[in-house]
Amino acid sequence: MNRSTYILPIIVIAVAAVMSSIFIVDERQKALVLQFGQIVSVKEDPGIGFKIPLVQEVVFYDDRILSRDVDPLEVTPLDDRRLIVDAFARYRITNVERFRQAVGTGGEDAAARRLDSILRAEMREVLGSVSSNDILSTDRAALMLRIRNAAIAEANALGITVIDVRLKRTDLPAENLNATFQRMVAERAREAEDERARGREAAQRIEAQADRTVVELVSEANREARVIQGEADAERNGIFAGAYGQDAEFFQFYRSLEAYGIAIGQGNARLVLSPDHEFFNYLRNENGTSTPDR
């Protein structure tokens, strides 16, 4: 029998054995070499690694930053106002030996479930120690940092480093939404009524000030009018006094005519006076009797 008949299978077996002993780790992975389930070596740097065929096996783990969405969680803050919190975390497998020991053959899925439990417990503890207004405010970075820092210690036991925790969404439970909306409507109505009351108060204050200003202006105008009228009367009296000083007889005659015009100028006036009353001095004739009506 030809020797090539034996040599060729041996070569094939040898090549297969060599190929099965080689494994490649790229830059996105870390690898563990296991022998009968026990860790033999760790390959963290990218490149070629070796193992014993049929005896040893290689398990690869993702070396990238991973993200995990936490299922919506109901928390009860200090003010007993229940909230539904939706969060996510970013983490990385930093110690593959510890990771393997912690999760066993469950791999990354088992680790993600355990990380969920850690995050949910820390979220309940941290968010339960503050009020709902602190959770609902936009400035809640301190709360997320507290959750992350609290989760880091427990996650390290899994060979995982928690990089970040974020609260994506915070809502009220569906059964509380209607009551909350009604309370918000009532609060806005109260604020609106307060604004209207302040507006009415301001309007009354402005109206009172305007009325006071009107009274002051009218009073000032009346005072000025009386002053002007008094000055005019004084000037008129001065003119009358000057006229009286120039011709007393004519002045008396002129004033009597004015009085006649006022007293009997309407045509239906009736005066009950004695005939010799001084009011009729300028209505008598030279003989001292009254001028007859014409």
Score class of each variant (00 low, 15 high):
residue 143 L to A: 12
residue 204 Q to L: 06
residue 124 R to Q: 09
residue 91 Y to V: 03
residue 193 E to V: 01
residue 239 I to S: 09
residue 234 A to L: 15
residue 51 K to W: 00
residue 225 A to H: 10
residue 54 L to D: 06
residue 252 Q to L: 07
residue 105 T to M: 04
residue 254 Y to E: 06
residue 67 S to M: 10
residue 275 P to D: 11
residue 219 S to M: 02
residue 92 R to A: 13
residue 157 A to L: 05
residue 46 P to C: 12
residue 58 V to Y: 00
residue 26 D to L: 09
residue 137 S to V: 01
residue 187 E to H: 14
residue 53 P to L: 00
residue 154 E to Y: 15
residue 6 Y to H: 09
residue 232 A to T: 06
residue 39 I to T: 09
residue 237 N to F: 11
residue 230 G to S: 06
residue 81 R to C: 01
residue 116 D to N: 14
residue 245 G to E: 08
residue 152 I to S: 14
residue 245 G to H: 05
residue 32 L to R: 01
residue 202 A to E: 09
residue 19 M to P: 02
residue 163 I to R: 05
residue 247 D to T: 12
residue 145 L to Y: 06
residue 32 L to I: 00
residue 261 G to T: 04
residue 46 P to R: 09
residue 84 I to E: 04
residue 216 E to N: 10
residue 180 T to Y: 02
residue 280 F to K: 05
residue 225 A to K: 12
residue 238 G to S: 07
residue 176 N to S: 12
residue 292 P to H: 10
residue 197 A to V: 02
residue 282 Y to M: 08
residue 69 D to G: 04
residue 271 L to I: 09
residue 188 R to G: 01
residue 281 N to V: 08
residue 270 R to W: 15
residue 268 N to Y: 13
residue 222 N to G: 02
residue 100 R to D: 08
residue 257 L to Y: 11
residue 233 D to C: 00
residue 140 R to Y: 10
residue 157 A to N: 07
residue 117 S to H: 06
residue 66 L to A: 05
residue 201 E to G: 14
residue 94 T to M: 02
residue 57 E to G: 01
residue 203 A to M: 10
residue 175 E to Y: 12
residue 158 L to I: 03
residue 209 Q to Y: 09
residue 153 A to D: 12
residue 66 L to Y: 13
residue 243 A to M: 14
residue 31 A to D: 00
residue 106 G to M: 11
residue 260 Y to V: 14
residue 20 S to G: 14
residue 176 N to M: 12
residue 189 A to D: 15
residue 226 R to E: 05
residue 142 A to L: 10
residue 143 L to C: 03
residue 53 P to E: 04
residue 13 I to A: 04
residue 10 I to K: 11
residue 99 F to A: 02
residue 169 R to L: 15
residue 234 A to E: 14
residue 124 R to I: 07
residue 152 I to A: 03
residue 17 A to M: 12
residue 286 E to V: 08
residue 149 N to T: 12
residue 199 G to L: 10
residue 122 E to R: 07
residue 292 P to I: 12
residue 84 I to N: 15
residue 208 A to Q: 07
residue 227 V to L: 07
residue 268 N to G: 15
residue 155 A to N: 11
residue 93 I to F: 02
residue 228 I to E: 14
residue 38 Q to N: 06
residue 37 G to Q: 13
residue 143 L to E: 00
residue 187 E to I: 08
residue 279 F to E: 06
residue 75 V to R: 00
residue 21 S to E: 01
residue 47 G to H: 14
